[in-house]
Amino acid sequence: MADVRRFLYINRKAPYGTIYALESLEVVLIGAAFEQDVSLAFLDDGVFQLAKGQDTSGIGMKGFSAIYRALGDYGVTKLYVETDSLATRGLTLDDLQAITFEDENDGYTEKPSIIPVNKAEMAKVMAEQDVVLSF
């Protein structure tokens, strides 16, 4: 395909206090139909979206953390997570849920989707894009 562009969705908000995180996910799922080169960036409070063990049964809201695990099915396999943002928030990569995809070009081997990057590397990821969408 000649016309594949690089899309980056930037997630900087915590999951339930505002609607941004869920809105971003919905746009990513819809946008996946266009078969572009999609990446997701999680930095600042956005890293909280990927925290494992989220249980929203007590707050009367639909939990959506499981949807991140479906992203691989939609061909979205690059989730850049800024480690500086994790550290600032008292988190490590172990506090995040495991997210994987099956690599069609490699006998459907399961591979991790989360790519840890530091601030400088995240800046480079941002600079490499054709289209950037912020949430």
Binding site: L29, A32, A33, K62, G63, F64, A66, I67, R69, A70, D73, Y74, Y108
Partner: peptide, 18 residues
């Protein structure tokens, strides 16, 4: 049940095929 989202048609055919 597993992903809390209904799959898009493209995802559904791929998963069913598998």
């Amino acid at each position: 049940e597993e992903y809390q989202v209904a799959p898009a048609i493209r995802v559904l055919t791929k998963a069913l095929s598998k």
